[in-house]
Design a binder for these strands. Structure first.
Lengths: 203, 203
DNA sequence: GCGCTTTATGGCACTCACTGCCATAAAAGT
DNA sequence: ACTTTTATGGCAGTGAGTGCCATAAAGCGC
């Protein structure tokens, strides 16, 4: 079976799982139930997901990966704020509206569902590493350099706050205006923090 | 039973659990085994710890709390770097050497033990919130302000890197010189980042 | 088309993390 | 001393997750 097929299968199960998590809570949703909803046997379900909470991973990584792609495409001569204004919109358009809603739903669920929170944090840490790689290339430093790690962490924090904001704001459904505001806040704050921390690293 | 007694009991179990985790891995250590080592029944063990991995919490929070106490005692007129040089040493002295070793062992274990990593990240997030509170008071801003959160995240990142460094450096036992170097690196980097981000927030 | 190997799936039994329930012991209050 | 509360232990049960094997299905040489 191709990797692509497996990824699509995981994503499909992920969608069902998140819906069930939102409807009845994580604890009240059994692996058997998710498997049944996704139309696979329980045994294969556990083969696709080592833990129940990791069901949220495919949906979330889809978004994180998209953001990382945008970041990697950041041309050296451009200001981050301008690049994001240009390139960040397609990210949200590339995903189906339902998936965007689902991701924000997961973000909301992580407050109040410790198991999901833990999975979320693990994923964010992976994303932070990816961020550090991008920054390292840009600053021509090893990804292990402390300046790189601190900058990556600060960016990650900005992303986290912005994501929480938009998730909170779009409880009653996402709007284009909401997403635009999100992108704008993200771009300005990220630019500010990066410029400032870069100077500190250089000085 | 007093809270204090309960805390001491949890800490005691925590020490046994960490030792077992280090000796044979988390997966290979059963709740029954930890309970037996700590001299309580399995049932009471599960009453003290909702999850196996949360056994590391008491030991880790002891250190985190100690650092937060130091931070809270940071006088407004003093530079952070000077305050840490003055006040951070007693923190490490206040804990028994075995506990310091155990904490560093846990930090090392979190690389390679995803379950412990997740618990570690949850705890770090709580610590970050405490950090944000301290910063908010200092900057006279609400703890929810984005500048506060970003600064807290950056500090948290510095702490994380420094902690990982010292944990890695003291595989063969901690030395006073190692701890001193740790404190010095922590103090200088924290000061730099804070000064820089404060300017950004003010500008 | 047909065998053969590989791989994905399902079923089953099992372990173990964790919980609810009750019975008892210890502590605390009067 | 008596009662009430609270901490503990035992026991049985649920559900997450795993190992094992049997089968189905996909890929491949012919």
């Amino acid at each position: 079976m191709s990797d692509e097929q497996r990824q699509r299968q995981r994503l499909d199960i992920s969608r069902h799982a998140v819906r069930l998590f939102a409807e009845q809570g994580v604890a009240a949703t059994s692996g058997e139930q998710i498997a049944q909803a996704a139309g696979v046997s329980e045994r294969t379900f556990w083969r696709y997901f080592p833990h129940k909470e990791s069901c949220v991973e495919p949906l979330l990584t889809k978004m994180v990966d998209a953001f990382c792609v945008v970041l990697r495409a950041w041309p050296p001569e451009l200001e981050l704020i301008d690049h994001l204004r240009e390139a960040y919109t397609p990210v949200l358009d590339s995903a189906s509206d339902e998936d965007v809603e689902a991701v924000l739903e997961v973000v909301r669920l992580t407050h109040g569902e410790p198991a999901l929170r833990a999975a979320y944090l693990m994923l964010r840490e992976r994303a932070e590493d990816a961020l550090a790689d991008v920054l390292a290339k840009r600053l021509d430093l090893p990804p292990t350099a402390i300046e790189v790690k601190v900058q990556a962490a600060a960016m990650s924090a900005v992303l986290k706050v912005a994501t929480d904001d938009v998730a909170q704001a779009s409880v009653e459904g996402v709007t284009q205006a909401g997403l635009d505001g999100h992108r704008e806040q993200l771009a300005t704050t990220l630019s500010l923090v990066l410029r400032c921390l870069s100077q500190a690293a250089a000085g």
